[in-house]
Design a protein around this nucleic acid. Sequence first.
DNA 1: GGGCAACGATACCGTCAGGGTATCGATGCG
DNA 2: CGCATCGATACCCTGACGGTATCGTTGCCC
Lengths: 282, 282
Amino acid sequence: METRELRYFVAVAEELHFGRAAQRLGIAQPPLSRAIRQLERRLGAVLLERTSRTVTLTEAGSVLLDEGRAALDAVDAAERRTRRAALSPTGRPGLVLVTKASASSELLAKLLDAYAAEPGAVPVDVILCGPAEQGRLLREGRADVALLHRPFDSTAGLHTEELSTEGQVVVLPAGHPLTARSHVHMADISSLPGLPLPRWPNADGTYPPGPGPQVRDHAQLLQLVALGRACAVSPESCRTQLHADLAAVPVLDAPNVTTVIAWPPHSRSRAVADLVRTATRL
Amino acid sequence: METRELRYFVAVAEELHFGRAAQRLGIAQPPLSRAIRQLERRLGAVLLERTSRTVTLTEAGSVLLDEGRAALDAVDAAERRTRRAALSPTGRPGLVLVTKASASSELLAKLLDAYAAEPGAVPVDVILCGPAEQGRLLREGRADVALLHRPFDSTAGLHTEELSTEGQVVVLPAGHPLTARSHVHMADISSLPGLPLPRWPNADGTYPPGPGPQVRDHAQLLQLVALGRACAVSPESCRTQLHADLAAVPVLDAPNVTTVIAWPPHSRSRAVADLVRTATRL
DNA sequence: GGGCAACGATACCGTCAGGGTATCGATGCG
DNA sequence: CGCATCGATACCCTGACGGTATCGTTGCCC
């Protein structure tokens, strides 16, 4: 199977419309119809049920949509990492590390310092992004290594090493009655009047139904807490980033948060290996 | 990048010889040279240093070799899983589960029974193979789900759920002095005169240097133990498979062995999800 | 040191896969 | 029942890819 065929099929499967898919691909509709038909012949599988009005995926088609997207990601990653390896002036490509904007900057700073002191260290670019993008960046070869937070982030398809574990605190507007407590339990905060827990987006960008406000990142969330519109359960380390009008109280029975360093499993780059080794020794 | 180009490059990178690579690919040498040159131009990267006598990989080339193999595996997996999904008579493809021949058949039997009783269960084919092949079968789309044993098997790039944890025992020829003990420690067996621990192959098929016999699978190993040529440290559950001329003694400080169920991370198949759910509820 | 063999690069050519335009046939809708 | 929409088909053309022949370079060995 050629990637061109896969791209064509993914386009049609996503649009469920040959005309629009062809437009998206920048080709005419007839060659697209032909290409799909030929792909089906070669696979010996009907991928799409088409009438002159509607196009729907068969079971096999939906398998190929999933697997094909993953395969195309892998091809793109190969291309991107090769380009990066080549255009690096030293011949030894730099590393791209991706982490959440809200993550503990302390750990990251320590890691970057320690790694820079290693013999043979290469330059490390840091990308800060929202939680959902991290996996994508790694899969697409735009990044080499990530700092993720279990159990929030999916480590699907990645190698990981645990770096640190911490408890969680509830972040409240300063002066809230609960801030007088030395600690609380989840039950104490799951139903605070007027201070719902926020809703985070799913992998597909949609939000689960529920009462809380929709948030995209941690800064946004803290803003909402300061405004008295929400409360937040966050890793302890976020305390160093709190403004004066926010207060944090440990939540005893909240799940621990583990910071892990993650990288694509087939990566055999010495730079990634060095960075991971440095991280585990912190 | 087209998969054809990737296949060409991987062939040359593996052979480090255009002529042999061309032969392997079933084409003539000139088109291959051209294709590689064109790939290099498009990537803006020198992949191979060639003189008229030798071909060597550049840094970028070795990145593309690693990443390209992974990408080709993903494409092959997409094709195979699609084919399987299609030729299944029900439209709903059956599952292929892969596990080691030496694994606990009890757990597997329970799992298959429980899953078969689920509503919407599909037929499950079981493949027994050596440890090294399991990952490959999953990556190449020949299998959908595997039972692996940590810490022996790599779960690189897979989703996993833990199923059970057990201690390990040392397997000895019946009548060996140690079999009188109720338990032993690793130190007791690491230097048994005449009964070395075996050597397992690395991922690339080579064996680490050392004194013990080279083994490829568990049956082979038990044979060697019965012959008095080796001893083996194995998960407790292997006791049910021991012949009369073998004895097992718990090893207190051997690492626990965890049986996990593993599947490719992007798999969204309901059948896999059902099977995993069933497994975790056992 | 010169002839030779091995090997990748280049030149040149033919074929067919893949893309384009025009049009058909089917289907849902007003 | 006519019309608009949409995928399939027919037909043509271009260029990408593969093949053969040959060149240029480089170790190697007598």
